[in-house]
């Protein structure tokens, strides 16, 4: 990356897109319900079909989103995998920040406190 890194932030660039291709391709396939079912029936076989790297397979096995991202996963595609496990973006956010889901949700609510008061007039 040419620019300075942004803390806690991973830019999905060409390097990530190359590294993560197999994992993201598998996640993209989950747009189809039949593929989600196939994954749930035999996770190993399904991951093998897409040629996941060992790092990607391990991250999926551990349901570890940060590890999936380190292996090139993109959150838009990973969200489809998370959905299979019944996880929404608050669950995923909690996992990545090491917070409980309730604490993460509270943090989201607390962001409202930073709304400049001028804005309130607009209603």
């Amino acid at each position: 990356m040419a620019s300075t890194a942004i803390p806690g932030t991973h830019i999905f660039d060409g390097a990530a897109a190359r590294k993560g291709y197999a994992l993201n391709a598998m996640c993209f396939s989950f747009n189809e319900a039949a593929n989600r079912d196939a994954f749930l029936r035999d996770e190993d076989a399904y991951c093998a079909r897409f040629g996941l790297t060992a790092e990607q397979r391990d991250a999926v096995a551990k349901r570890n989103v940060l590890a999936m991202m380190a292996a090139g996963g993109n959150i838009y595609y990973l969200a489809k995998l998370a959905g299979i496990f019944g996880l929404n973006v608050q669950d995923v956010g909690a996992q990545q920040t090491g917070m409980t889901v309730d604490a993460f949700k509270q943090m989201l609510l607390d962001n409202a406190a930073a709304i400049p008061t001028k804005e309130m007039a607009h209603g």
């Binding site: 942004i6 803390p7 806690g8 932030t9 991973h10 989103v65 940060l66 991202m69 959150i75 990973l78 969200a79 973006v89 995923v92 956010g93 990545q96 920040t97 993460f104 943090m107 989201l108 962001n111 409202a112 930073a114 709304i115 400049p116 804005e119």
Partner: peptide, 12 residues
């Protein structure tokens, strides 16, 4: 949505 900074917003 992603990374350790997940949940970040910036009203300003």
């Amino acid at each position: 949505l992603d990374g350790e900074r997940a949940g970040f917003m910036n009203p300003e």
